[in-house]
Design a protein around this nucleic acid. Structure first.
Lengths: 353, 353
DNA sequence: TCAAGATTTTGAATCGATTCAATATGGCGG
DNA sequence: CCGCCATATTGAATCGATTCAAAATCTTGA
């Protein structure tokens, strides 16, 4: 800053007290005599001293009172991806309650990310492991701070993580459509693997697909099996979790001889893109096509029609992760929290043929 | 963390070199002889030393490489308010490019906020001054770090700020509707003042309204005046910038004898709530009612129909603020950037009577 | 072989606070 | 007036690194 940056020592000297006393004036005012306190505060004001610098305090105290949330994504991810935002909102609520700050740390390339993780001033990390989870975990581990992984697709049980029961969630979604009477369905899968775009054969799911979509898929299949429908009977359209690939998928699906009466989307984001496409094509949801999303992001509650979805317990996930970090008691095993089917207006029985 | 936290000094001693050399091994490896470097690194590995602790480095260097974005709102504001998110996304983009981190700092009550501002480990602040701007600025000023205020409603020219030309923006919005032929309009204003809810008389605007909505209002009025329409002829419905008050406003507006054919909304958020209400009531946009928003948030581009709006230059605002903070060259005067009318599908000529 | 110059390494100061044992001051009872 | 106890204040150590002038070591050329 300016040339003459005032520090506590300057104030102490100018006020004619020891540095210890000056420190107490600010951090434990009750312990110093009122008269002295006044004097020190006055001097501080005159000198333009704005209170103890956090950097000094930090070094001594070692605690920052902030947690970092990290992802292998650009920074904008935290503010425009619906899932990330839902989580951040929930985390924000918990942090607000406990007076904890949030630093978002991210980067696209590994080198930058390593640097960012190492230089983030936080007491611990919450890792959003949607993609590139291993690298992220490894980088964070080196930092030797408490961390917890969310949406982890890794089996390694030594990594503290909180997960969700994607299989059960998928089953609930598919079962809901089956109970309504749908038999012709299609699946909109998500992922970052370029090879899994367009029609995906079921036998490629296990070896090639990432953990989250794979589990959701198995959930769908499980419900379908209950109704005697083999997985080959339900086309899987792979998307890259963005609008273009979703639109392509929808076009393929609905240009076929017998288009589906219901769609199982692996995320609300993709489901909402699909709904937009349907609306533009003049297909009515849920009269012509039913659709079930996944995640339970807020947009799903305000869309038109409101989207039926399988909701993640964001608040619970946030609560557990933040307290785990702040109290440094990390879960021993991978917990899998329950998802909840939220039935709204995007699902109805199929039109009678 | 654990009892035996290894620090640089430990590594140095164990490797039999001075602390200075050990430091160089990590921060300027080229300056130390390869043989020594190897030895130190090996010892570090053995001891489980994870590289220089950022806290120590920070104290010396004084630079954190992160900027704080602060608002007098709960933390969740940054992740769910459309305007805040647009800005954060833009800021994120700039920070990504320069390898800078972002810490979000916020709080509802003043005491907490003061603490958060004082303890945020950042090189400077961007202040989102939508409400409670004065307190926020004052608090930040004490911190003696560079800061820049956005959306500032304060005249004080000594506060570094980047603003937008709300008057011109309002004029552009109203002029657009007038050119389409609308003569019966209504204004949806925004604000945090409880008294300005429901029908607001024009003479209350200047004394009671916050700066941003006041300027936008004057912009509207200016265009109306060009067409010879007095401001009394255009009802102003005050909202609290949330859904309930917007719905109440719309209900009042459309239960009147001659409802408006066009709506001037002071934010996209309110405009989108209004559009939803219209859709639920079976009123078609733009056939039955035209509507112009304000801000240019991304949701406005994907709504159905896509919303005509006056867009803020978020990228430019972000670029200027971030570089101002990082390079500590703060604007001398209040700059007012231009807004851009983005015509989309929510505006059309009124139905012929 | 030696001086000059180049390269490494050292050691101590520094960043800005907090902490705590030791000391000073004040009040009070005897 | 003294001793004791409680309260206030001091001074130095500490947190964990970086920095830089000075010292040590190594090259090089004469």
């Amino acid at each position: 800053m300016g040339k003459g940056h005032v520090r506590l020592a300057d104030v102490a000297k100018a006020a004619g007290v020891s540095q210890g006393t000056a420190s107490n004036v600010f951090s434990r005012p009750d312990v110093v005599r009122e008269e002295v306190r006044e004097r020190v505060l006055n001097v501080a004001r005159e000198l333009g001293y704005g209170g103890p610098d956090i950097k000094g305090r930090l070094l001594r105290a070692g605690r920052v009172n902030a947690i970092g949330v990290a992802a292998v994504e650009p920074l904008t991810y935290f503010f425009d991806d619906p899932w990330a935002r839902s989580l951040m909102t929930a985390i924000g609520e918990v942090c607000d309650a406990s007076g904890t700050g949030i630093a978002v740390v991210s980067a696209m390339n590994e080198e930058r990310l390593a640097w960012n993780i190492n230089s983030a001033l936080v007491d611990g990390f919450i890792l959003l492991c949607v993609e590139g989870g291993e690298r992220l975990v490894e980088l964070t581990r080196q930092r030797q701070l408490p961390f917890i992984a969310l949406a982890l697709g890794i089996e390694d049980e030594t990594i503290p993580a909180i997960g969700i029961d994607n299989v059960a969630g998928g089953t609930a979604a598919a079962r809901h459509l089956l109970e309504l009477g749908h038999r012709d369905m299609a699946i909109l899968s998500i992922g970052d693997v370029d090879g899994l775009v367009g029609l995906v054969a079921p036998e490629r799911v296990d070896p090639e697909m990432e953990a989250t979509p794979r589990d959701r898929m198995h959930g769908y299949w499980q419900a379908l099996a209950e109704y005697g429908i083999p997985c080959e009977a339900v086309p899987i359209q792979g998307t890259l979790h963005d609008r273009p690939s979703t639109i392509t998928a929808m076009e393929t699906l609905f240009s076929s001889a017998n288009p589906p009466t219901a769609i199982l989307a692996m995320s609300d984001k993709v489901a909402l893109f699909a709904m937009q496409w349907l609306a533009e094509r003049g297909l009515k949801v849920p009269e012509d096509v039913s659709i079930v999303g996944f995640d339970g992001v807020p947009e799903a509650a305000t869309s038109l029609p409101r989207l039926t979805t399988v909701a993640q317990p964001f608040a619970e996930i946030a609560r557990r992760s933040v307290t785990a970090i702040l109290e440094n008691v990390l879960p021993e095993d991978h917990e899998a929290l329950d998802l909840e089917l939220v039935v709204r207006d995007s699902t109805a029985p199929p039109r009678p043929r």
